[in-house]
Amino acid sequence: MQIEIRFFASLREALGQTSLSWRTEAATVGALRDELTARGGVWAEALARGRAVRAALDQAMVGDEAALRDGAEVAFFPPVTGG
């Protein structure tokens, strides 16, 4: 399936991009993160397990178990610091 991925803040800077159109076989947000990590280089470093990375699916905070669907908008970002 085809999805749109967005990156914010320090993660956006580390990866050097704000968004990515991505064809994936991953069934969940967690599996997608692992798929991106497997690209190696800055991807492996910025998204590695153990790093504080939060995710949103269709603009709502979710955990690793959230199921992807075709056309979904997924975002990865560091812990939020507003207010």
Binding site: V80, T81, G82, G83
Partner: peptide
């Protein structure tokens, strides 16, 4: 609302 916003709203400070 402030407690919620601090941890759940997608803002980042640099």
């Amino acid at each position: 609302l402030m407690d919620y916003l601090k941890t759940q709203a997608p803002f980042w400070k640099k």
